[in-house]
Design a protein around this nucleic acid. Structure first.
Length: 290
DNA sequence: TTCCAGGGAGTAT
DNA sequence: ATACTCCATGGA
């Protein structure tokens, strides 16, 4: 068991793990349990103190983004009353550094699904194809290696509840496994180029790409847009959008490609290089109170 | 039962 | 380039 004092690093563990960026953490009592890499992490927060087990401080700092300068980020994105309200409400929410592959597969699965259903799918995938790790007499499962997913059958994947996403997960896993696509190479690419590369994968469009770039590859300017974010922007940012843009957005219920680019570029332009942080605060706020 | 979900691909214009 | 349609499934 180790402790970490959060003196100069505001952090809210609950908000960070509940805001829908990760899907495989569970709270038992006041402890959170999650699997990263091949080990089970156990974390709880008591005020300014973060307690953790089965991992080390270096990993915790990196995984939870504790070295991001949240005050500086907050000053950069705090452009208006609404975002400042969300920042205040969830102060200490941070963008987690997910493992890129888990992040990619997770958000391919997440398309057109609710969060409880996504959790269900990913837990099924991990139980079926991940490595079992026993911790505190409980079975946990690591996220599947690309090799296991690449060699799975469509039926096995479909059995996990993936539906029509099964073939996307399979084909993308094959491209990762045979090294024709190297996720790590995107780290040093600029945002736009990395996004273009990601969108060449089956099951990956602009939304999934932005999520992977933000949550897995440290591109904080990525501004993923879904129906919730569209809702936020139409409810609170009409003044900052052009009237022509608002008309185009109100025309249809869903989110066309054109609408996606419009909103994503607005977010990036308006909130700046930490737009992804703004997006996550706004998204969480809209889901809880919208 | 019906509706909706952290959208993407395929096809028609 | 842009718009329309279909998609499997679980949860509310």
């Amino acid at each position: 068991m180790s402790n970490l004092r959060l003196d100069k690093a505001p952090f809210d563990l609950d908000a960070t793990l509940c805001c829908g960026q990760v899907f495989r953490w569970d709270k038992m009592g006041d402890w959170w349990y999650g699997v990263a890499g091949k080990s089970v992490l156990k974390v709880r927060q008591r005020g300014e103190e973060l307690e953790f087990a089965n991992t080390d401080e270096k990993f915790v700092r990196r995984y939870f983004g504790l070295d991001d300068n949240l005050r500086q980020i907050s000053r950069a994105i705090g452009k208006d009353a609404h975002i400042r309200k969300a920042l205040e409400e969830f102060w200490g929410l941070r963008i987690i550094r997910q493992e890129p592959l888990e992040c990619l597969i997770s958000y391919i699965c997440a398309t057109y699904k609710s969060i409880p259903a996504i959790k269900h799918m990913l837990n099924n995938l991990s139980r079926k194809f991940g490595e079992k790790v026993v911790f505190e007499e409980t079975d946990f499962f690591g996220f599947p290696e690309p090799r296991r997913l690449a060699r799975a059958s469509l039926a096995e994947l479909a059995d996990c509840g993936l539906g029509y996403r099964a073939k996307y997960v399979l084909e993308t896993s094959k491209r990762i496994f045979d090294d024709s696509f190297v996720l790590e190479r995107l780290w040093q690419m600029p945002y736009e180029q990395a996004k273009l590369e990601l969108c060449s994968l089956p099951g990956v469009g602009p939304k999934v790409a932005d999520c992977v770039l933000l949550f897995g590859l440290g591109k904080f300017e990525a501004f993923p847009v879904d129906v919730w974010v569209k809702r936020v922007l139409l409810n609170h940012y009409v003044g900052q959008l052009t009237t022509e843009a608002v008309q185009r957005l109100s025309k249809t219920e869903g989110l066309s490609n054109t609408q996606y680019r419009l909103l994503s570029e607005f977010g990036r332009g308006y909130f700046g290089k930490f737009a992804g942080y703004a997006q996550e605060y706004l998204y969480h706020f809209e889901r809880l109170y919208g």
